[in-house]
Design a protein around this nucleic acid. Structure first.
Lengths: 350, 350
DNA sequence: CGAAAGAATGCAAACGTTTGCATTCACTTG
DNA sequence: CAAGTGAATGCAAACGTTTGCATTCTTTCG
């Protein structure tokens, strides 16, 4: 019933508690004989160091808090899973702090502080300068995922959203879309803004002016309703760039429900390249944003930050690349040449 | 930089650390004056009790560990999300322990013990009697989700899988399926077994003998491959009950890819009633298993267990109910009466 | 062979709380 | 008015570790 502690092991092995501690901390000095005895005693007793006690006195709790929103978007779920595994491989545990919608991350940060987390990963909500100051004061490293903040010592990793928007715009123009539109999650979502900017800027440069729409709310059905609204609007778009695949897939559904054919009547592009996007029923054209590299970058940032807490903040941009499937038309065939609006060839585009 | 501790607050408020502690623990005696002073001082200093220290000495860490598999099935993701929120509402945090495939849950249990979790929720992997003994010895409450174990003091909550299987079988027979089959995740998956049993037993009682198939592996594509194999087998089934929606949705895809029409050529039934199952593209017939009640039961079990650690284990069965959509034929119309095999009417069935 | 160096170990003080025990103090009650 | 009651408080000992310092023991080198 009662826990077996370091003292029990010390007694059993005939050494001091310190010796036991040193055996269990890598890089501490302990003679082979002591090590062997201690290990044997520990094994016999079934001893495991209490990470609570360790965390209380030591410098690391081997605990990281992640602030997440709803997991209804598969991307978030897969991200969380990959993150937990990557951390586990480094012998670190993940604690969840759920945040509601666009609510402040503050309670999540407090949670991270309360448990003396080694770091907090912010993957939902908006972080303010005050928040980051709070963390800085407490010595809690912050890593932003999919958002950015101009604050000292705050690291971040983001997709190259603007470039994704550019690629989407390029594709739509090259496939003779005349009424491009954007469907996002709302003005407050960081990545959305960047994707919109890249999209709209590129189109503006090409002489087109996209319409902008937003879902009301983040629940999955909101995307369906919004897409339905977009696609039954007076000047119905014939090309729709959605801020992510979760929205885009629902847009495909909405289009079909309205009797529109994709991509003939309307082209649809997503973002993330979810496994679902490749399903035969959808064959969604999208921008690939590999979760592995996202998580890899986070882990890497985490390591360097932990090694040097004083270094200035670094933000990493991860490239995304277009995966054209069946919800957009072929760029080179099947479209009457006369319908193709002349577009400057962009060598970086696919 | 350095943390503000209970002593700092005590000094600032002009009282002893104990007094501060008592102000922050509900139900302890503190005079209104002291309370006010302490609260003011704490607020001024930005004090928050260290949950590590609290957990070390106190009886609760307000920490629960959940052992989860991959989050690629949306059901798991939604479950995790709901669980985290429900716990957060009770001021308890959730720690993730990821387990690979059917790997032992042991490292997850150790993680729970290392951090002195208030409880561990096992939602993946298989738990042995030895595992449960380990937890019992350490005084760690175990709650099984979607699995059962005959062990003292271990609680569990499961869907009424056998009844789900029965309902699926009933529906297939009532809609004139002659070659029913089951597609599961594999022999080692607890819920799968029960669903199969309920399905097969019911069919046997009706004089039919379903074929049984399993996916090789748990990754999403495995389900697609398996379904493709099933549907191109010599005696192709005309009714397929899948162990969950994730599989069933892929089966629908596979059927379509093979040029089969659903439900005319083959009826397909899932389990869970994922949001996706209701999408227009699928309209999957399935068994509704509300995540809310699952999580609710877990929380409830947790509360009662924590209140009385000595009580004997309790397993709760949650009802599931059929949601017939478009991947099964209508039971009463559109099928030649002659084709309907006489089936005993079951009053509980929909 | 003596001394300096370095490895191995133990002691005791942290880390930031809770909590049992004893004390004080203001009231109530007979 | 004396004694009994109960709330409010402080002291100090846990909780299970790590770690700086001092000590002892082994080497190694001049």
């Amino acid at each position: 019933m009662s826990r077996v502690t370091i003292k029990d092991v010390a007694r059993e092995a005939g050494v001091s508690p310190s010796a036991v501690s040193r055996v269990f901390t890598t890089g501490a000095s302990a003679s082979p004989l002591t090590r062997e005895r201690v290990l044997a005693a520990a094994d016999r007793l079934g001893y495991r160091p209490s990470l609570l006690a360790r965390g209380l006195v030591g410098r690391s709790t081997h605990l990281v808090t992640v602030i997440m929103g709803s997991l209804s978007d598969p991307f978030d779920a897969l991200f969380l899973d990959a993150l937990a595994r990557a951390l586990a491989a480094r012998d670190t545990r993940l604690m969840i702090a759920s945040t509601a919608g666009g609510a402040p991350t503050e309670s999540g940060l407090q949670q991270a502080l309360d448990y003396k987390s080694d770091a907090v990963i912010v993957a939902a909500g908006t972080m303010s300068l005050a928040d980051s100051a709070l963390c800085a004061r407490a010595g809690l490293p912050v890593i932003l995922a999919g958002r950015a903040l101009e604050a000292p010592g705050v690291d971040g990793v983001l997709a190259d959203n603007a470039d994704g928007g550019r690629q989407a715009a390029d594709l739509l123009m090259r496939t003779a879309c005349h009424r491009p539109a954007y469907l996002g999650l709302g003005k407050t979502t960081f990545s959305d803004r960047e994707r919109w900017q890249g999209f709209a800027d590129t189109l503006a440069r090409l002489g087109a002016k996209p319409a902008e729409w937003a879902c009301e709310g983040r629940d999955p059905e909101a995307a369906f309703r919004a897409a339905s609204a977009v696609l039954s609007a007076p000047h119905r778009p014939d090309g729709l760039f959605c801020s992510n695949d979760a929205v885009a897939l629902r847009a495909v559904e909405a289009a079909r429900a309205l009797g529109l054919s994709v991509p003939e009547d309307v082209s649809i592009i997503g973002f993330n390249n979810l496994p679902q996007a490749a399903w035969p029923s959808f064959q969604l054209s999208t921008l690939d944003y590999p979760i592995g590299s996202l998580v890899g970058a986070i882990i890497d940032l985490l390591d360097t930050r932990l090694a040097d807490p004083q270094r200035s903040g670094e933000v990493r941009r991860l490239p995304v690349h277009l995966v054209p499937r069946a919800t957009t038309r072929r760029a080179d065939v099947g479209v009457p040449a006369s319908a193709v609006r002349p577009v400057p060839i962009n060598p970086e585009a696919l």
